[in-house]
Write a protein that binds this DNA or RNA. Structure first.
Lengths: 125, 125
DNA sequence: CGGTATCCGACCTGATACTG
DNA sequence: CAGTATCAGGTCGGATACCG
């Protein structure tokens, strides 16, 4: 069994596609990072993030639950309380996401500058 | 100046959104990773990746060029050759992406197992 | 409070055809 | 070879209304 993968770069990339579609949507990452602090209830998440519709929050949370990234605990009180907690798997995702986040922080200004420059040249034609 | 960011977690997360939509689409990451090996020409990229339409490749490359992630060099030969090269910015993105990729490799099996289990329970109802 | 159901518009993506 | 233009389908995401 080979330890160094001579695997072509594009084959390795295919593996990313699934994960990227996993976290590539608009809300997943924000929800995961929000739950990194502590478990939260539905509307708590909603308020914390802000701008997310009830439906998209419910949908995204269900997807995360399906993937085993969060657990859903229903407390049969009145009114009902549902608490979402990050699993070990979910917490482990936070690290690479933060890497990406720090990359973003370091380069977002440069990217936006590039965009402006590019668009300006385009407009001039 | 504070070194430890007391920044609320959700504020920090907003910054990610832009970057994630940057790399969150279906092809960007695969193109970047393909160009990590070496500069390539249009159809070279197309063949290497496989399954991408001509339009999506052109579109995604244009977006990457706009962001300053790749440079586009036209050699005025017949037939024309256009070579795409990763910039320093583009290369710097490869690192966090690989982090995400290794996370994917380490956990994809678990995730798929979780999904199967979740779906099976759902079907039984 | 914590959802689900329904509808709708916007965008993403691909197929195809055409151009320099 | 390296695109652009056009069209069509599917998915994403939001608004609204309703339910337990």
């Amino acid at each position: 069994m080979k330890l160094t993968t001579p695997e072509p770069i594009h084959v390795e990339c295919k593996r990313f596609s699934g994960v990227l579609s996993l976290i590539g949507d608009k809300w997943t990452v924000m929800i995961v990072m929000t739950l990194t602090e502590r478990p939260r209830r539905f509307n708590d998440i909603k308020r914390t993030i802000g701008g997310i519709s009830q439906q998209m929050l419910a949908r995204t949370l269900r997807a995360l639950e399906r993937d085993g990234m969060v657990t859903r605990a229903v407390h049969p009180t009145v009114p009902p309380q549902v608490e979402y907690t990050l699993t070990a798997l979910g917490r482990s995702l936070a690290a690479p996401i933060r890497e990406l986040g720090s990359w973003a922080g370091a380069h977002i200004a440069e990217i936006e500058s590039n965009r402006s420059a590019f668009d300006e040249v385009k407009d001039r034609r």
